[in-house]
Design a protein around this nucleic acid. Structure first.
Lengths: 228, 228
DNA sequence: GTATTTTGAATGATCATTCAGCAAGCATCT
DNA sequence: AGATGCTTGCTGAATGATCATTCAAAATAC
């Protein structure tokens, strides 16, 4: 194990220049928390939920054993904070993509799908961490709530887009079913990206695009949203 | 805890009539193993993977603490046997559905999708158990292999059906992407069935049907495969 | 009778949590 | 500037709880 001095030196290298007096302390605390969350994601990806121990996390962060309980009070709190972080990051990511997209429903849906298969989101590491939480969500209300909140806005946004295109295109199905099928498909593709080594991010993205083309053939083509 | 006598009496009620002398012993062993596997699925569904202990399983089966190690040697063996059992059952289920289906690709696909949302397969109990294993599959090669084997034949069958209809209908996409999108969608729907209380089996099945209609509009309609 | 199955207490390993003590940052005083 | 004391952050050994596994003895089947 590394000495405390080395660790601290490293932190000071990477941390901000410490302008204010109170700020530097607070920043340090947040940075340390984030460091532990990243180490938790690493361990979840490497060892899975059941085999992730506080010792693993601490070792991964190159810190001592008691550190997690000092910053998070308990293992459960650490895991909740980790899931919270991933959920926030995910929401932030697709929200930003939506803002940057064009005004039409087709453009917005295309952007949402692209965001879901963005290289930054589909790391094996993050997919595995998501999946670890999914596996435990059934029996843990807190995880279920956080995983569910991930969807709630996303799915509603998706439903609105589906409804808009449905009316424009005169499609026969109902918007809820379409949104459900498409969102589920993307989640299932995430699952497979994580599980099998044979599937690439690009192939998964392509499959998702075929899926939305199936639902909105007048609005979306293989090359992108269809301009009218 | 119940007495051993009561348990055994119950087993003899439900077990086969015990014809041969050697056979009855062997049967008893298999029955006891199955009983423990069922208790494991119960515990996975109720408590999740991480919190499932051998004591839970034994209590659930109304048997004593050491029983699992006697029949399965280790906790790991029990879990592998449980996953194996679920995988076999699943494969058996869709294979049977496929055999019973009509000869056309559309009929066969309709039957496969219906099988996936059959009441017997989409119990919260079983979905939760599947999901518990998915969550650990990333870091456990044995689980990964068993979960993957689940797909291998299924997906290949699906790809063949997609390819057949694609040629008949002159659809523009490639069969692999279509099969991937549809299979993933169904897996994602399973995930959601397990997670959220708001989604019903029927709604999930409907969404899956809309998905395949999108891919094969000339072959499949909302009421079933389209006869030509 | 012997062989098989089951029990449940004992064992030892793993792990989360605690906490007394150490180190570093920071302000105040000389 | 250097010394002093206070606060915050961190360490790692100790603690106690949980749990898989073992096994001697008991129960049951044959």
């Amino acid at each position: 194990m590394r000495s405390a001095g080395a660790t601290r030196a490293k932190r000071m290298d990477t941390a901000e220049p410490m302008a204010g007096e109170k700020k530097s302390r607070k920043a340090s605390k947040e940075i340390r928390k984030q460091q532990l969350i990243e180490a938790t994601i690493d361990s979840l990806a490497k060892r899975g939920y059941a085999e992730t121990t506080l010792a693993n996390v601490a070792d991964g962060a190159k810190l001592s054993r008691g550190i997690v309980n000092f910053h998070f009070e308990s293992k459960e709190n650490l895991l909740i904070a980790t899931l919270q972080f991933m959920a926030d990051e995910y929401a932030q990511h697709w929200s930003t993509a939506l803002e940057k997209a064009g005004p039409s429903a087709a453009e917005r849906m295309w952007a949402l799908v692209a965001a879901d298969f963005d290289r930054r989101m589909t790391t094996k590491r993050k997919l595995a961490a998501w999946c670890a939480f999914w596996g435990e969500a059934k029996s843990r209300p807190t995880y279920q709530a956080l995983c569910g909140a991930r969807d709630l806005n996303y799915q509603r946004t998706f439903e609105d887009l589906c409804a808009e295109m449905r009316i424009e295109g005169g499609y026969a199905y109902d918007a809820e079913s379409a949104a459900l099928a498409i969102c589920s498909s993307m989640e299932g593709l995430w699952l497979r990206l994580m599980m099998s080594d044979g599937l690439t991010r690009e192939a998964a993205h392509k499959a998702a695009i075929e899926c939305i083309i199936g639902f909105f053939p007048k609005h979306i083509g293989r090359e992108g949203p269809i301009k009218t």
